[in-house]
Simulated scan of single mutants.
Amino acid sequence: MPPIPDLVATALVFVLAGFVKGVIGLGLPTIAIGLLVLVMAPAQAAAVLILPSLATNAWQLAGPGLVPLLRRLWPMMVAIVAGTLGAGTIGAGWLAGDGRLAIGGLGAALAAYGLLGLSGARFSVPARLEPWLSPAVGAATGAITGATGVFVVPAVPYLQALGLGRDALVQALGLSFTVSTVALAASLAGQGAFRLPEAGMSLLALAPALAGMALGRRIRGRIGQRAFRLCFFLGLLALGGHLLLQARS
């Protein structure tokens, strides 16, 4: 049984992460991993993330538009799995081995995502480039997932650039996150980093994550999305910078 302070800290982290996801539709793994590595090893943090991430993203994935999305995005999904598992000797090795490399990589990923969000940059992917870009983006996302446990970069900016409708975009994000979570779980299990204690903490984190998400969805309309996203991306930038400094020390 993990120490009570660890359980309380983990629960609070997932309430916050679930709240962010409930308000803006993403951010649970980013917030959870970024904060958990302040109190536990990166591999353990990534393992604890598995069940809350899988449950919330599977819910986000469900819907009648799933089959068309699978037909369009399957090369990206296959590449995510291949990239994550292929990172087993490098990226996942960082995650399950020397934590400084994983923390540094995570800090860089969070800072890059924060800067991208703050820039307000908007991209558009021509349809003719999609067959080439989808596998490349998927492989890059998988490699970063294997190395840091965070699977938002570059998948989220790419999916936002495809010109999907609002509901289709939310569902596409759920699809990408679900595939990434399953691939990360397989990678961690192969490294011996997803064991019974981590699985137990992951199960315990499920209820706080869902509670936070329900709270975020309830007050979504009461908080200005623009102001909240600004604070969110500033927070990611600050957290990423802190982790980069921590990795160097």
Rank of each mutant, 00 (worst) to 15 (best):
46 A>I: 13
139 A>V: 09
79 A>C: 09
29 P>V: 01
101 L>T: 13
166 R>D: 15
171 Q>P: 04
193 A>T: 11
229 R>A: 15
78 V>K: 12
122 R>V: 05
248 R>P: 06
227 A>C: 07
98 D>P: 13
233 F>S: 04
113 Y>H: 08
110 L>G: 06
61 L>R: 04
128 R>Q: 13
135 P>M: 10
55 A>H: 02
162 L>V: 08
96 A>I: 03
104 G>V: 07
102 A>N: 11
135 P>A: 11
86 G>A: 14
104 G>M: 09
157 P>S: 12
223 I>E: 01
244 L>M: 14
103 I>F: 00
115 L>R: 02
186 A>W: 09
235 G>Y: 06
193 A>F: 08
38 L>F: 14
245 L>Y: 04
13 V>S: 02
30 T>Q: 11
15 V>Y: 04
148 T>D: 07
138 G>K: 02
57 N>C: 07
204 L>D: 08
126 P>Y: 14
163 G>T: 15
202 S>H: 02
236 L>S: 07
153 V>L: 13
18 G>N: 03
190 G>L: 00
24 I>F: 08
68 P>Y: 07
95 L>V: 09
39 V>M: 15
5 P>S: 09
27 G>Y: 04
161 A>S: 15
80 I>G: 12
82 A>Y: 07
216 G>V: 06
21 K>S: 10
42 P>Y: 04
189 A>G: 10
47 A>M: 06
230 L>A: 00
72 R>V: 04
50 I>D: 01
202 S>A: 10
202 S>W: 01
72 R>S: 10
23 V>T: 11
243 L>Q: 06
95 L>P: 00
209 A>N: 09
42 P>F: 03
172 A>W: 01
192 G>F: 01
4 I>G: 12
